[in-house]
């Protein structure tokens, strides 16, 4: 049985890029994998159709809390499922990777919603400097950077959380940028491998190798390097300009892009000093824990030292 490994992240933290690298690891020819046919990983954990199909219960008639009560069982079932459909495009991957933007929460019954140790062998947690997340999330959600900063600090912010209509995905509680990372790092059910977006940039082969080896996949450096090469930001932007990217949120401003800058540290020229200060105040503890040095706070204390 293939092990299941969650690809967990707060949005805009490198999850999609990692999945593109995965798709390129198995590319049968030299051409880069099609960004609109990323088959190196399973559908997102929160897909509604899979819930309805495997539990045989219409999720559209359940409340969010009722749905969450059933999700642990669903994920354990899928992780243990050995049925292979000859007509489905079977993944040849040695690991069943499943993307998720769900924070690691407990259901009302006190159970881990992601299903605990029987639902996955581990999780790869992607994190990114929140100051970079803010600008990227603003673009993704078509909101101002200030609004995005507010969402990142809002414990109630969720994807597909409307009760007035039926979303194609189940509700995903994000809990806020710090609490999202905290929820995955604090749980003791499954091992977590932390991948920083910045490390994917600085040393893509090393960072991808670390993640794959954690998942139990001994890919060679040569293969990884080739896959990384096919997933360059230039290639992704080229494909997006040509065909668009199906996973991008629909109906954004004309000319907006999913593959925007692919850059680490872009916040320095995108955020105002006030915005940087706000993010650092909201997330200082988790930033320090993940190795993102607050600058405003430092400048403030420098200023205090000078005046004091």
């Amino acid at each position: 049985m293939r092990p299941t490994v969650w690809l967990a992240s707060y949005p805009k933290s490198g999850n999609t890029w990692f999945r593109i690298v995965l798709a390129n690891l198995d590319s049968p020819d030299a051409a880069p994998a099609d960004i609109n046919a990323l088959n190196g990983s399973d559908t997102i954990a929160s897909a509604r159709a899979r819930f309805d199909n495997h539990l045989l219960i219409e999720s559209g008639l359940l409340t969010f809390a009722e749905i969450d009560l059933l999700r642990p069982g669903l994920y354990r079932h899928l992780a243990a499922d050995i049925f292979e459909d000859p007509f489905e495009r079977e993944s040849r991957y040695p690991v069943r990777f499943v993307k998720t933007h769900d924070a690691y929460t407990l259901t009302n019954a006190g159970e881990a919603m992601m299903g605990g140790a029987h639902a996955a062998a581990g999780a790869i947690l992607f994190v990114r400097d929140p100051r970079d997340v803010a600008a990227s999330l603003a673009n993704h959600q078509s909101v101002t950077i200030d609004k995005a900063i507010g969402l990142m600090a809002d414990p109630a912010f969720a994807f597909c959380g409307s009760v007035r209509g039926l979303e194609i995905q189940l509700r995903q509680q994000l809990l806020g940028w710090s609490a999202f990372a905290e929820s995955w790092l604090a749980q003791a059910d499954i091992p977590v491998h932390l991948v920083r977006y910045e490390d994917l940039h600085r040393d893509p082969v090393g960072a991808v190798r670390g993640a794959l080896h954690f998942a139990g996949w001994r890919a060679t450096d040569a293969d990884i390097a080739e896959a990384v090469g096919r997933a360059s930001i230039e290639e992704l932007q080229r494909q997006e300009a040509k065909t668009g990217f199906g996973e991008a949120p629909p109906y954004r401003e004309p000319g907006s892009r999913f593959f925007r800058r692919g850059k680490a540290g872009g916040w320095r020229d995108e955020l105002t000093a006030q915005q940087v200060l706000r993010i650092e105040r909201d997330h200082v503890a988790m930033m320090k824990r993940l190795g993102y040095e607050p600058v405003r706070e430092q400048e403030d204390s420098d200023a205090h030292r000078q005046t004091g």
Binding site: H54, L55, L56, I57, G73, H77
Partner: peptide
């Protein structure tokens, strides 16, 4: 499945 059992002629579902 997590919420169901299937036999040859019968079926059990729990919501």
């Amino acid at each position: 499945g997590p919420t169901w059992q299937r036999g040859a002629k019968d079926f059990l579902l729990e919501i």
